[in-house]
Design a protein around this nucleic acid. Structure first.
Length: 435
RNA sequence: GUGGCUGUAGCUCAAUCGGUUAGAGCGCCGGACUGUGGCUCCGGAGGUUGAGGGUUCGAUCCCCUUCAGCCACCCCA
């Protein structure tokens, strides 16, 4: 046995790559309909590109090594830093808002589990240069439309939306010290995933002078907000009614787009990454038995912090692994379209030159053609044609050649018809037109 | 990185108490079938039982190590 593929890295056999292509096609289709342009960057980047933003502790999660030129390099774990650099380099000349998408293969050195490998493909869509909530709604709408394009509806997939500005304001109002906000965010992020969230929150409240248990209780109360009424009341209580304008405008826009059925307000959504500054959202399967399908949000300070142009931005990443699991679970695999139009059968060895000429002619006409690479019985050849799920067999034998015709067999019905060359091309050409 | 569970043919699984040559179905290849596919029947290939070591007269089975997969942590692209 040769060495196996590395753990967490996938091999795509034909039946598996068809699912991948199906997902990619949906991604590209939605990106195109939303007016996004495709870009790409290097899969291998200088290590600093990631350590600068996320700190040296992320190095343990990276596929990182020293190359032959003694450069510290890493396989890209995410696309945003590359995007920030590329946009930064041409920020002055790019017409805003910038709508760009990419389908990078990303890498991360972690122990693998279901839905999380060391490598995956991820659709990244970002709008850069527009701070208003309609940009957020546009991005979230695109994420939803990908689900729809794959046949997933509101009963399959849910979008949960929050806003860090709102959460921040409410937490401060509840008595969470400014210094503990980040830690408290991270604790809230785990609501619904771990039992002892209250304990985690208390632990996060390092700098709280008063009763931490009481603050933690209020924090949990805030994180449990799921509707506008409670949100508005909570904001009114701390005298900060206008903080939620962006979030509410975004929700209104999504409703106007007709996506209300997919969307839930959920203040327990925070996202792990530190750089989000506003609206944040996640897509989950409705049963929540899988990992997140998609996560994103607004990161207005990041591009400037990375040394590029100081532009507001909002975007998401959507991986192919969890999405693929869900598609399989919901039986939404693409129906296998016959890859082969015609299988040419050679009855005798003397027919081969005719078969080869015919294959060339049909292929030139755009028809998918296969023929036997060594002479076999007609039965054998038809077996192969059936296994290939060809629509037709075109049989060429001594009889047909003497008549200047071929025998066209419909492999589904079994009906046969002797036709001339021109008639054959016409018949096959019309049916395969548009392929 | 930590802990638990699991590793038998390409796939799904079997193999008595530790017993001698590790089986079956599906799939694959060939034949029955020298001008007609899907069905059927027959035959064949395919295994270092994940790998290495130990105990034993003898290990798929018991023990240790290691690798891989799954699950939970960690972390969340």
């Amino acid at each position: 046995m040769p060495a196996r593929a590395l753990p967490g890295f996938r091999e795509f056999y034909p039946e598996e790559i068809s699912l991948r292509n199906h997902i990619f096609a949906a991604w590209r289709n939605v990106a195109r309909r939303y007016g996004f342009e495709e870009y790409d960057g290097p899969p291998l980047e200088p290590l600093e590109l990631y350590t600068e933003k996320s700190g040296p502790e992320i190095v343990g999660q990276l596929y990182e090594f020293v190359d032959k030129g003694q450069r510290r390099v890493a396989l890209r774990p995410e696309m945003t830093p590359t995007l920030a650099r590329m946009v930064g380099a041409r920020a002055a000349s790019l017409k805003k808002p910038i709508r760009w998408y990419s389908i990078p293969q990303l890498f991360r050195y972690e122990r693998q589990q279901r839905g999380r490998l060391r490598e995956h493909f991820q659709l990244n869509m970002d709008i850069i240069g527009e701070p208003g909530p309609l940009a957020d709604a546009e991005i979230i709408g695109a994420a939803i439309d990908v689900q729809r394009a794959l046949g997933l509806g509101p009963e399959d997939v849910r979008v949960r939306i929050s806003d860090r500005r709102v959460l921040r304001c409410l937490l401060l109002g509840a008595g969470v010290p400014e210094e503990d906000l980040t830690a408290t965010f991270m604790a809230i992020d785990r609501v619904g995933r771990v039992q002892n969230v209250a304990e985690l929150i208390e632990k996060a409240l390092e700098h709280a002078p008063e009763d931490r248990t009481a603050i933690a209780k209020r924090v949990l109360e805030i994180a449990s907000i799921r509707d506008r009424g409670r949100l508005e009341k909570a904001l009114g209580d701390v005298g900060a009614g206008s903080v939620a304008e962006g979030l509410l405008d975004c929700l209104d826009a999504l409703r106007a787009m007709g996506f209300e059925e997919f969307v839930d307000l959920d203040l327990s959504i925070v996202r792990g990454l530190a750089y989000y500054t506003g609206i944040v959202f996640e897509l989950f399967d409705a049963q929540q038995s899988l990992r997140a399908i998609c996560g994103g949000g607004r990161y207005d300070g990041l591009l400037g912090a990375l040394g590029g142009a100081d532009l507001p931005a909002v975007g998401f990443g959507m991986g192919d692994v969890v999405l693929g699991e869900l598609i399989k679970e919901k039986n939404l695999l693409p129906s296998k379209r016959a890859a082969l139009d015609v299988f040419i059968v050679a009855v005798t060895g003397a027919d081969m030159p005719e078969v080869l000429a015919l294959a060339r002619e049909l292929r030139d006409a755009g028809i998918a053609v296969e023929y036997p690479l060594r002479l076999q019985s007609v039965a054998k050849q038809l077996k192969l044609a059936a296994a290939r799920e060809a629509r037709w067999a075109v049989m060429v034998g001594p009889d047909e050649r003497s008549e200047g015709k071929v025998l066209l067999r419909d492999l589904a019905s079994g009906s046969e018809e002797k036709v001339g060359r021109e008639a054959l091309l016409q018949r096959l050409g019309t049916v395969t037109a548009g392929k």
